[in-house]
Simulated assay, not measured.
Amino acid sequence: MPVRPASEPAESKKLEDSRSVTFLGDDAALVAGVQAGNTVAMGALYDRYVGDVRRILLHTLGPRLDLADLVQDVFVNVLSSVRSLREAGALRGWLFQVTVRTARKHLRSSTRRWWLKLWPEGDELELQPAAMLEESSSDAVRATFRILSGMVAEDRLVFSLRYVSGLELSEMADACDMSLSTLKRRLWRAEKRFFAEAREDDTLRHWARGDES
């Protein structure tokens, strides 16, 4: 996990210092520990959910050089607001909400399409995780993000969460903080847009037609 400058929030430093100790306990114990300021629990929270957070950000935003920073931003926000979580059993869904809010913020404000820069040159290549480069090397992945880049933020979010991250509809509704009926309407609109364009793409045509058969 990258080290933040000294000016960054204290939660980030606590998270990094706690990584070498093992935390044993379920989500209820984990939440209680984090809310009590236990640094071991903070590190365990990161270890337990960093994979899910990273996948959602990667799948909704695409490969980008600042992905690690965005992952850390999610956990800094989680640690600073965890006292508002009243039900420990809702930890996973609540953490997904924070992750989706982070993705939504960057989809709406970003003016640079980082996911189109799949093969950076020089020093930038060394900054990208190997898994990101492997995933971004796929023509299908590149074509998928090219279509997604033309969608409005909310449509892109729901489509990516469903078809790229593989979340269930109920999980998506919670993560996006919207009703199930609203989610279904937006997903239907996103599906219609995506599959119409995918059927015209040489890389995705076979997959798109097979999905509808």
Rank of each mutant, 00 (worst) to 15 (best):
D155N: 14
A41F: 04
F75N: 05
L95E: 04
L157C: 05
S7E: 12
A190R: 00
D211G: 10
L70Y: 05
V78T: 11
L133Q: 15
A175S: 13
E87Q: 14
A140W: 04
S20N: 14
V3D: 13
E135P: 04
G89W: 05
Y49D: 02
A10P: 08
S165H: 00
E134L: 03
V21N: 02
E11R: 08
L161A: 07
F23A: 13
S110R: 10
E197G: 02
W207Q: 13
R142A: 15
R205Y: 09
A103I: 13
L79N: 15
E191L: 08
E87N: 15
Q35C: 07
L45D: 01
F145C: 06
E171W: 00
R4K: 02
R92T: 14
R193E: 15
A190W: 03
L24W: 11
N77L: 11
S213C: 07
D47Q: 15
V78N: 03
G37E: 09
A6Y: 10
M1R: 09
D17M: 11
S149C: 08
E124Q: 13
R54A: 06
L57Q: 01
D17N: 14
K192I: 00
T144E: 13
L58S: 10
A36P: 02
H206C: 00
W115S: 12
E124P: 02
A29F: 05
Q128N: 00
A153I: 14
V34R: 01
S12T: 09
M132Q: 14
R104Q: 11
E197R: 13
Y46H: 06
S7W: 12
S7R: 12
F75M: 04
W115M: 11
S20Y: 13
L127Y: 04
L79M: 09
F75T: 02
R48T: 11
R86L: 04
S213G: 14
D123H: 08
I56G: 00
L118H: 10
L148R: 01
R4C: 09
S12M: 09
R4G: 10
H106W: 14
E154K: 12
R193W: 13
P9F: 06
T203Q: 05
A90F: 11
S181H: 09
T182I: 07
R55M: 10
W119M: 10
G166Y: 05
P129H: 03
E135Y: 11
M132C: 10
W114K: 10
L79V: 04
D139P: 10
E124C: 02
L15A: 11
E200G: 01
R209D: 13
R113P: 06
M42N: 07
E135W: 08
S20I: 06
E87S: 14
D66E: 13
A103K: 10
F159E: 04
D52R: 15
Y163D: 07
R112F: 12
I56H: 05
V98D: 03
A103M: 12
R162H: 11
D17A: 14
F96G: 08
G166K: 07
G43S: 04
G25Y: 12
R83G: 10
S80F: 01
A173F: 01
D201I: 00
R142F: 07
A41W: 01
W114Q: 14
E16P: 06
A32L: 14
F23H: 09
L118K: 13
F159K: 04
V74I: 03
I147F: 04
D139T: 08
V50T: 14
L133F: 01
S170V: 15
D66N: 15
S181L: 13
C176P: 00
A28P: 02
